[in-house]
Amino acid sequence: MDRVPQTPPQPQPRPPAALSTGAVARRLGVSPTTLRSWERRYAIGPARREAGRHRRWTPPDIARLELMCRLTAEGVPPAEAARAALGVAAAERRGEAVAPARTPGGAGALPLGAVRPECRGLSRAAVRLDAPTVAELLEAALAEHGLVTAWEEVIAPTLHAVGRKWATAGERYVEVEHLLSWQISSALHRIRPAPEPPRTPPVLLACVPGEQHSLPIEALTAVLGQRGLPVRMFGAALPAEALHDAVRRTGPRAVVLWAQSRTTADPSLARSVAGIEWGLRGARSRTALLLAGPGWSPDAQAPRTERLYGLRSGLAVIESLAPPRAATGAAGAGPFAYGS
């Protein structure tokens, strides 16, 4: 009699990995201390714990916390939110029908799309106007990912989501944008620059006149400082004459002009800055002009200018500039400058 072929055992799917308290806190936009407090006060901790080991949160545990965060963000007291989240979990275990879940974050959620979990946590904390947690999450993202990756994959997506929400909600969420922007700026200013090498021309960064949005060039200022490149940051809405004077006085390696909108971008200003010369007669120099921001139109390109399209690529462009040369004469060495 022929043997009946045995069906090989099918591999069992691995259960989703459980997360630490710190990882869950970053994902949800709350502090680890808050999670421990909720567990102690409202018994909303991990469903299973092994003696002598750290807390590990499974997907069902995290789902309960997400519901609690949504409810507290909408003004529900924490005790009531915890009871509701635990009640939903118990009903699901009994197989009872549960009302469909709302959009993550509730009606006030930011439209983030596919992003890192840290980005969702940051957005939730910002919508709650939880400044201490926003600051903590920003510091954690900068420490874990570095400034460039944290900006491109955590900070900038959250800022863009706030802008989109504001644009579709009238005057609502302005307070969220202001709080988030202030905390980001503060975190960037806490980054200590490396010592500047002597006799090295700086990079000048400024917003065009009338432009108040300076966060992107604040991030560029911070990362250039980390690399040890001398930076002179002039911030928002620098008057044109002040910009011209600063270029002539410093002989910079490059000038970065930021324009957030078409209404503030000024092609004539770009052309005038690109044409500034300094140094002794016969040894004149010009700077490299770098236009940054979505306000500059493609036809705004002036001679001796280049466009910057992101923090990482912008940093590479600045670092790739040819070593500057000194304009010298009878009076001695003049300012160092990027040669045209």
Rank of each mutant, 00 (worst) to 15 (best):
E177A: 07
L205D: 09
A194I: 08
R232C: 05
R262M: 01
T221W: 01
T200A: 14
T168G: 12
K165G: 02
F234E: 05
T263R: 13
Q226D: 01
V208Q: 12
A219I: 06
Y173M: 11
A167C: 03
P202Q: 03
A167G: 15
L179G: 11
S185T: 09
V208D: 09
P198Y: 10
A237L: 01
R164L: 14
E218A: 13
W182P: 00
R253N: 06
V223L: 07
H244C: 01
L204F: 02
P230D: 05
S186F: 05
H189P: 00
P193N: 00
R232S: 06
P216Y: 05
I217S: 06
L229H: 07
V174F: 14
A219F: 10
P198Q: 05
K165N: 01
E211H: 09
T263H: 09
V176H: 15
L243S: 02
R262E: 14
G210E: 04
V203C: 07
P193Q: 01
G170E: 08
E177G: 12
M233D: 11
L224M: 07
R262Y: 03
P201A: 15
E218Y: 04
I184Y: 10
S261A: 11
G235P: 08
G228T: 05
A222I: 05
L179Y: 10
A246Q: 13
L229R: 11
L238K: 05
A169Q: 12
G235I: 07
E218S: 10
A237T: 07
P209S: 00
R249C: 02
S186C: 04
G170P: 10
L243N: 03
T263I: 03
P197Y: 13
T250H: 14
T264G: 00
P239H: 05
E211L: 04
G251Y: 04
V203P: 15
E211C: 01
A222R: 09
H178E: 11
T200Q: 14
R262G: 14
R199H: 13
M233R: 06
A237D: 15
G251K: 05
A254H: 09
H178M: 06
P193W: 06
L205T: 08
G235L: 11
R227V: 01
V223G: 05
A187V: 10
S261E: 09
P195N: 07
S181G: 15
I184C: 13
Y173E: 07
L238T: 13
S186Y: 06
A187S: 15
A187N: 14
A259R: 10
H213A: 02
C207G: 12
H189C: 03
E177H: 11
V203H: 03
A236R: 15
G228E: 10
P202T: 01
F234H: 14
T264C: 09
S181V: 01
G170K: 07
L188H: 13
V231W: 05
L180D: 11
R190W: 04
T263A: 13
A167D: 13
G163Q: 10
C207I: 02
A194L: 13
T263K: 10
W182N: 13
G235F: 14
I191F: 12
G228D: 09
P209L: 00
L204Q: 04
